[in-house]
Amino acid sequence: MRVGAAALAVTLLLAACGDAAPSTPPPAVLVVAGRQVDFVAELSAGFVEGVRRVPGVGHRAVGPDIVDNASELRTIQDYLSGERGSITLFTFAPELFADSLGRAATAGTPVVALHSVPAAGSGVPLYIGNDNRALGGELGRTMAGRWPVDAEGLVVIGSPYPGVIVLDERVAGLREAIQRLRPGVTVIGPFDTKQAPGANKQAWRVLQEANPDALAFIGVGGADAHSLALLRDPTTTRVDGGFGTDPYALEMTAAGDMVLLSTEPYLQGLLAGAIQARCAKEGRDLPTGWLPAPGVLIDQARAPGVIDRQKNAEARQAWFAPLAEEILGDLDDRLRPLDDAR
Protein backbone atom coordinates (compact mmCIF):
# COMPACT_ATOMS: atom_id res chain seq x y z
CA MET A 1 0.00 0.00 0.00
CA ARG A 2 2.81 2.41 0.88
CA VAL A 3 4.62 1.53 -2.35
CA GLY A 4 1.44 2.23 -4.31
CA ALA A 5 1.19 5.66 -2.70
CA ALA A 6 4.73 6.49 -3.77
CA ALA A 7 3.98 5.29 -7.28
CA LEU A 8 1.00 7.66 -7.33
CA ALA A 9 3.29 10.52 -6.33
CA VAL A 10 5.31 10.04 -9.51
CA THR A 11 2.30 11.23 -11.52
CA LEU A 12 2.69 14.61 -9.82
CA LEU A 13 5.91 15.14 -11.77
CA LEU A 14 3.96 16.46 -14.75
CA ALA A 15 4.37 19.94 -13.38
CA ALA A 16 8.13 19.49 -13.17
CA CYS A 17 8.65 18.52 -16.78
CA GLY A 18 7.63 20.50 -19.93
CA ASP A 19 5.84 19.43 -23.72
CA ALA A 20 4.14 16.54 -25.46
CA ALA A 21 4.85 12.84 -25.06
CA PRO A 22 6.54 10.58 -27.65
CA SER A 23 4.59 7.49 -28.71
CA THR A 24 7.34 5.13 -27.56
CA PRO A 25 9.47 6.56 -24.76
CA PRO A 26 13.17 5.66 -24.84
CA PRO A 27 14.50 3.64 -21.91
CA ALA A 28 15.88 5.46 -18.91
CA VAL A 29 19.63 4.83 -18.87
CA LEU A 30 21.89 4.86 -15.82
CA VAL A 31 25.65 5.08 -16.41
CA VAL A 32 27.80 4.26 -13.39
CA ALA A 33 31.36 3.66 -12.32
CA GLY A 34 32.02 0.44 -10.45
CA ARG A 35 28.75 -1.53 -10.42
CA GLN A 36 30.19 -3.88 -7.78
CA VAL A 37 30.72 -1.03 -5.27
CA ASP A 38 28.07 -1.44 -2.57
CA PHE A 39 26.62 2.04 -2.61
CA VAL A 40 26.65 2.10 -6.43
CA ALA A 41 24.60 -1.11 -6.34
CA GLU A 42 22.18 0.73 -4.01
CA LEU A 43 21.98 3.66 -6.47
CA SER A 44 21.25 1.21 -9.27
CA ALA A 45 18.59 -0.71 -7.34
CA GLY A 46 16.82 2.52 -6.43
CA PHE A 47 17.01 3.73 -10.04
CA VAL A 48 15.33 0.53 -11.28
CA GLU A 49 12.59 0.94 -8.67
CA GLY A 50 12.03 4.57 -9.66
CA VAL A 51 11.69 3.73 -13.36
CA ARG A 52 9.45 0.75 -12.58
CA ARG A 53 6.90 3.09 -11.05
CA VAL A 54 6.33 4.76 -14.44
CA PRO A 55 4.51 2.19 -16.64
CA GLY A 56 5.71 1.89 -20.21
CA VAL A 57 9.31 3.02 -19.67
CA GLY A 58 12.17 0.54 -19.72
CA HIS A 59 15.52 0.89 -18.03
CA ARG A 60 19.15 0.04 -18.64
CA ALA A 61 22.22 0.26 -16.41
CA VAL A 62 25.68 0.32 -17.99
CA GLY A 63 29.23 0.82 -16.80
CA PRO A 64 32.28 -1.15 -15.68
CA ASP A 65 32.02 -3.72 -12.89
CA ILE A 66 34.94 -2.23 -10.97
CA VAL A 67 35.75 1.45 -10.65
CA ASP A 68 37.30 2.46 -13.97
CA ASN A 69 36.80 6.10 -14.95
CA ALA A 70 38.29 5.66 -18.43
CA SER A 71 36.00 2.71 -19.17
CA GLU A 72 32.97 4.65 -17.95
CA LEU A 73 33.95 7.58 -20.15
CA ARG A 74 34.13 5.27 -23.18
CA THR A 75 30.73 3.80 -22.29
CA ILE A 76 28.98 7.15 -22.14
CA GLN A 77 30.07 8.09 -25.66
CA ASP A 78 27.26 5.91 -27.04
CA TYR A 79 24.66 8.06 -25.27
CA LEU A 80 25.69 11.59 -26.20
CA SER A 81 23.87 12.15 -29.51
CA GLY A 82 20.34 12.48 -28.16
CA GLU A 83 19.12 9.50 -30.18
CA ARG A 84 18.89 7.22 -27.12
CA GLY A 85 17.03 9.53 -24.79
CA SER A 86 18.13 10.97 -21.48
CA ILE A 87 20.75 9.53 -19.15
CA THR A 88 21.56 9.59 -15.45
CA LEU A 89 25.27 9.59 -14.63
CA PHE A 90 27.17 8.70 -11.49
CA THR A 91 30.92 9.11 -11.67
CA PHE A 92 33.78 9.46 -9.21
CA ALA A 93 35.48 11.93 -11.60
CA PRO A 94 32.98 14.58 -12.78
CA GLU A 95 35.71 16.83 -14.19
CA LEU A 96 36.72 14.06 -16.59
CA PHE A 97 33.19 14.03 -18.03
CA ALA A 98 32.68 17.78 -18.40
CA ASP A 99 33.52 17.93 -22.12
CA SER A 100 31.43 14.86 -23.02
CA LEU A 101 28.43 16.09 -21.07
CA GLY A 102 28.78 19.51 -22.64
CA ARG A 103 28.54 17.85 -26.07
CA ALA A 104 25.52 15.89 -24.88
CA ALA A 105 23.81 19.12 -23.82
CA THR A 106 24.57 20.68 -27.22
CA ALA A 107 23.06 17.61 -28.93
CA GLY A 108 19.92 17.88 -26.80
CA THR A 109 20.55 14.85 -24.58
CA PRO A 110 19.04 15.49 -21.12
CA VAL A 111 21.41 14.44 -18.32
CA VAL A 112 20.80 13.91 -14.61
CA ALA A 113 23.94 14.02 -12.46
CA LEU A 114 23.65 11.66 -9.50
CA HIS A 115 25.50 11.74 -6.15
CA SER A 116 28.54 13.65 -7.52
CA VAL A 117 28.29 17.39 -8.22
CA PRO A 118 28.67 17.97 -11.98
CA ALA A 119 31.75 19.90 -13.06
CA ALA A 120 31.53 23.42 -14.46
CA GLY A 121 30.84 23.40 -18.18
CA SER A 122 28.94 20.11 -18.11
CA GLY A 123 25.63 21.66 -19.14
CA VAL A 124 23.80 19.32 -16.76
CA PRO A 125 20.36 20.73 -15.85
CA LEU A 126 19.56 18.52 -12.85
CA TYR A 127 21.70 17.23 -9.98
CA ILE A 128 20.38 14.87 -7.32
CA GLY A 129 22.63 14.49 -4.29
CA ASN A 130 23.20 15.29 -0.65
CA ASP A 131 24.18 18.48 1.09
CA ASN A 132 27.46 16.85 2.04
CA ARG A 133 28.75 19.65 4.24
CA ALA A 134 25.55 19.48 6.27
CA LEU A 135 25.85 15.69 6.59
CA GLY A 136 29.46 16.00 7.69
CA GLY A 137 28.39 18.57 10.25
CA GLU A 138 25.67 16.30 11.59
CA LEU A 139 28.07 13.42 12.06
CA GLY A 140 30.66 15.77 13.57
CA ARG A 141 28.17 17.13 16.11
CA THR A 142 27.15 13.62 17.10
CA MET A 143 30.74 12.47 17.48
CA ALA A 144 31.63 15.55 19.52
CA GLY A 145 28.76 14.79 21.87
CA ARG A 146 30.51 11.55 22.81
CA TRP A 147 33.43 13.40 24.41
CA PRO A 148 33.62 15.70 27.45
CA VAL A 149 33.38 19.43 26.74
CA ASP A 150 37.02 19.86 27.78
CA ALA A 151 38.24 16.85 25.79
CA GLU A 152 41.71 16.94 24.29
CA GLY A 153 43.32 14.63 21.77
CA LEU A 154 43.30 13.69 18.10
CA VAL A 155 40.53 12.84 15.68
CA VAL A 156 41.80 11.22 12.48
CA ILE A 157 39.82 11.66 9.25
CA GLY A 158 40.31 9.54 6.14
CA SER A 159 38.96 9.76 2.59
CA PRO A 160 39.27 7.22 -0.23
CA TYR A 161 39.24 10.05 -2.79
CA PRO A 162 40.80 13.29 -1.47
CA GLY A 163 39.93 16.05 -3.91
CA VAL A 164 36.47 14.72 -4.80
CA ILE A 165 34.09 17.59 -3.98
CA VAL A 166 31.38 15.65 -2.15
CA LEU A 167 33.90 13.89 0.10
CA ASP A 168 35.87 17.07 0.75
CA GLU A 169 32.63 18.78 1.78
CA ARG A 170 31.93 16.01 4.29
CA VAL A 171 35.41 16.54 5.72
CA ALA A 172 34.82 20.30 5.94
CA GLY A 173 31.54 19.76 7.79
CA LEU A 174 33.13 17.30 10.20
CA ARG A 175 36.09 19.54 10.95
CA GLU A 176 34.00 22.66 11.52
CA ALA A 177 31.55 20.94 13.88
CA ILE A 178 34.19 19.18 15.97
CA GLN A 179 36.46 22.19 16.32
CA ARG A 180 33.55 24.46 17.22
CA LEU A 181 32.09 22.14 19.85
CA ARG A 182 35.32 20.67 21.21
CA PRO A 183 38.05 23.31 20.74
CA GLY A 184 40.61 21.22 22.63
CA VAL A 185 40.40 18.45 20.03
CA THR A 186 42.79 18.46 17.07
CA VAL A 187 41.40 17.16 13.77
CA ILE A 188 43.99 15.78 11.34
CA GLY A 189 43.52 14.63 7.76
CA PRO A 190 41.95 13.75 5.48
CA PHE A 191 44.46 11.01 4.81
CA ASP A 192 44.20 9.07 1.55
CA THR A 193 42.64 5.73 2.54
CA LYS A 194 42.25 4.33 -1.00
CA GLN A 195 39.14 2.81 -2.57
CA ALA A 196 40.19 -0.83 -3.05
CA PRO A 197 39.06 -2.84 0.01
CA GLY A 198 42.45 -4.35 0.84
CA ALA A 199 44.34 -1.09 0.42
CA ASN A 200 41.68 0.78 2.39
CA LYS A 201 41.90 -1.59 5.33
CA GLN A 202 45.70 -1.40 5.32
CA ALA A 203 45.62 2.41 5.22
CA TRP A 204 43.39 2.51 8.29
CA ARG A 205 45.56 -0.06 10.07
CA VAL A 206 48.60 2.17 9.53
CA LEU A 207 46.73 5.25 10.75
CA GLN A 208 45.58 3.44 13.88
CA GLU A 209 49.04 2.12 14.65
CA ALA A 210 50.45 5.65 14.25
CA ASN A 211 47.76 7.19 16.48
CA PRO A 212 46.91 4.57 19.12
CA ASP A 213 45.39 7.08 21.55
CA ALA A 214 43.13 8.89 19.06
CA LEU A 215 39.66 9.81 20.30
CA ALA A 216 38.13 8.55 17.06
CA PHE A 217 38.78 7.56 13.47
CA ILE A 218 36.23 8.86 10.97
CA GLY A 219 36.02 7.87 7.30
CA VAL A 220 34.00 9.81 4.73
CA GLY A 221 33.67 7.00 2.15
CA GLY A 222 31.78 3.71 2.22
CA ALA A 223 34.94 1.61 2.09
CA ASP A 224 36.16 3.40 5.22
CA ALA A 225 33.24 2.34 7.41
CA HIS A 226 33.73 -1.29 6.38
CA SER A 227 37.42 -1.23 7.25
CA LEU A 228 36.93 0.60 10.53
CA ALA A 229 34.38 -2.00 11.58
CA LEU A 230 36.66 -4.90 10.66
CA LEU A 231 39.63 -3.42 12.51
CA ARG A 232 37.83 -3.20 15.84
CA ASP A 233 38.61 -5.87 18.45
CA PRO A 234 37.21 -6.64 21.93
CA THR A 235 39.70 -4.25 23.54
CA THR A 236 38.67 -1.23 21.44
CA THR A 237 36.74 1.27 23.56
CA ARG A 238 36.54 4.38 21.36
CA VAL A 239 33.54 5.16 19.11
CA ASP A 240 34.44 5.55 15.43
CA GLY A 241 32.43 7.23 12.68
CA GLY A 242 31.69 6.63 9.03
CA PHE A 243 29.32 6.97 6.11
CA GLY A 244 27.10 4.31 4.57
CA THR A 245 25.20 1.18 5.56
CA ASP A 246 27.93 -1.46 5.39
CA PRO A 247 26.60 -4.58 7.19
CA TYR A 248 29.64 -4.94 9.45
CA ALA A 249 29.55 -1.25 10.35
CA LEU A 250 25.82 -1.49 11.09
CA GLU A 251 26.53 -4.37 13.50
CA MET A 252 29.14 -2.25 15.27
CA THR A 253 26.69 0.66 15.39
CA ALA A 254 23.98 -1.54 16.90
CA ALA A 255 26.52 -2.50 19.58
CA GLY A 256 27.25 1.17 20.30
CA ASP A 257 30.77 1.10 18.89
CA MET A 258 30.25 3.30 15.81
CA VAL A 259 28.07 6.12 14.49
CA LEU A 260 27.12 6.15 10.81
CA LEU A 261 25.63 8.69 8.45
CA SER A 262 23.85 7.15 5.46
CA THR A 263 23.70 9.23 2.28
CA GLU A 264 20.69 7.08 1.27
CA PRO A 265 21.89 6.14 -2.24
CA TYR A 266 18.83 3.94 -2.85
CA LEU A 267 16.59 6.99 -2.45
CA GLN A 268 18.82 9.09 -4.71
CA GLY A 269 18.61 6.47 -7.44
CA LEU A 270 14.85 6.14 -6.99
CA LEU A 271 14.33 9.88 -7.39
CA ALA A 272 16.53 10.01 -10.49
CA GLY A 273 14.81 7.01 -12.10
CA ALA A 274 11.30 8.30 -11.42
CA ILE A 275 11.99 11.82 -12.69
CA GLN A 276 13.90 10.66 -15.76
CA ALA A 277 11.27 8.05 -16.69
CA ARG A 278 8.35 10.43 -16.19
CA CYS A 279 9.92 13.11 -18.35
CA ALA A 280 10.83 10.54 -21.03
CA LYS A 281 7.27 9.22 -21.11
CA GLU A 282 5.76 12.66 -21.34
CA GLY A 283 8.39 13.97 -23.77
CA ARG A 284 9.19 16.82 -21.41
CA ASP A 285 12.29 18.64 -20.22
CA LEU A 286 13.99 17.68 -17.01
CA PRO A 287 13.49 20.05 -14.09
CA THR A 288 16.41 22.38 -13.49
CA GLY A 289 18.52 22.76 -10.36
CA TRP A 290 19.80 20.79 -7.40
CA LEU A 291 17.45 18.37 -5.66
CA PRO A 292 19.00 17.83 -2.20
CA ALA A 293 18.61 14.23 -1.06
CA PRO A 294 18.29 13.73 2.70
CA GLY A 295 20.63 11.49 4.65
CA VAL A 296 20.00 9.77 7.96
CA LEU A 297 22.12 9.56 11.10
CA ILE A 298 22.38 5.97 12.35
CA ASP A 299 23.14 5.55 16.03
CA GLN A 300 22.64 2.60 18.34
CA ALA A 301 18.90 3.22 18.63
CA ARG A 302 18.31 3.49 14.88
CA ALA A 303 20.67 0.74 13.74
CA PRO A 304 18.25 -2.23 14.20
CA GLY A 305 15.62 -0.60 11.97
CA VAL A 306 18.17 0.14 9.24
CA ILE A 307 19.51 -3.42 9.47
CA ASP A 308 15.96 -4.70 8.93
CA ARG A 309 15.33 -2.46 5.93
CA GLN A 310 18.58 -3.54 4.26
CA LYS A 311 17.66 -7.24 4.38
CA ASN A 312 15.81 -7.33 1.05
CA ALA A 313 14.39 -5.25 -1.78
CA GLU A 314 10.84 -5.36 -0.44
CA ALA A 315 11.88 -3.93 2.91
CA ARG A 316 13.77 -1.07 1.24
CA GLN A 317 10.84 -0.27 -1.04
CA ALA A 318 8.45 -0.07 1.91
CA TRP A 319 10.89 2.02 3.96
CA PHE A 320 11.49 4.65 1.29
CA ALA A 321 7.99 4.81 -0.21
CA PRO A 322 6.57 7.57 2.04
CA LEU A 323 9.66 9.77 1.70
CA ALA A 324 9.76 9.28 -2.07
CA GLU A 325 6.10 10.28 -2.25
CA GLU A 326 6.77 13.41 -0.22
CA ILE A 327 9.77 14.54 -2.27
CA LEU A 328 8.31 13.79 -5.70
CA GLY A 329 5.04 15.47 -4.78
CA ASP A 330 6.85 18.66 -3.69
CA LEU A 331 9.59 18.83 -6.29
CA ASP A 332 9.36 22.47 -7.34
CA ASP A 333 9.63 23.74 -3.77
CA ARG A 334 12.60 21.49 -3.00
CA LEU A 335 14.78 22.42 -5.97
CA ARG A 336 17.68 24.74 -5.23
CA PRO A 337 20.12 26.52 -7.58
CA LEU A 338 22.65 24.14 -9.09
CA ASP A 339 25.47 26.50 -8.10
CA ASP A 340 24.62 25.85 -4.43
CA ALA A 341 25.31 22.10 -4.72
CA ARG A 342 28.03 20.79 -2.46
Rank of each mutant, 00 (worst) to 15 (best):
P183D: 04
V185I: 14
V187R: 01
I188H: 03
I188C: 05
I188Q: 10
I188N: 02
G189S: 10
P190F: 00
P190T: 04
F191K: 15
D192T: 04
D192Y: 14
K194T: 07
Q195K: 13
P197F: 07
G198H: 02
G198N: 12
G198L: 10
G198P: 01
K201C: 14
K201N: 12
A203T: 06
A203L: 08
A203W: 00
W204V: 11
R205Q: 15
L207D: 01
L207Y: 05
Q208K: 08
E209R: 13
A210Q: 15
N211G: 05
N211M: 04
P212R: 07
F217N: 02
I218M: 02
G219W: 10
V220A: 13
V220R: 09
G221W: 13
G221Y: 12
G221I: 02
G222N: 07
A223E: 14
A225E: 00
H226T: 15
S227M: 08
L228E: 14
L228H: 11
L231D: 01
R232D: 06
R232Q: 15
R232G: 12
D233T: 13
P234G: 07
T236V: 14
T237L: 12
R238T: 12
R238F: 06
D240K: 04
G241Y: 06
G241D: 02
G241V: 09
G242V: 07
F243Q: 03
G244H: 11
T245M: 10
D246S: 11
P247T: 08
P247D: 02
P247Y: 11
A249K: 00
A249Q: 00
L250T: 08
L250S: 07
M252R: 15
M252T: 01
M252G: 14
A254G: 15
A254F: 00
A255E: 12
A255D: 09
G256Y: 09
G256N: 12
M258E: 10
M258I: 08
M258K: 09
V259K: 11
L261N: 11
S262K: 12
S262T: 15
T263E: 02
E264K: 15
E264C: 09
E264H: 10
P265N: 05
Y266T: 10
Y266D: 03
Q268H: 03
Q268R: 04
L271F: 06
A272S: 14
A274T: 11
I275C: 02
I275M: 08
Q276L: 08
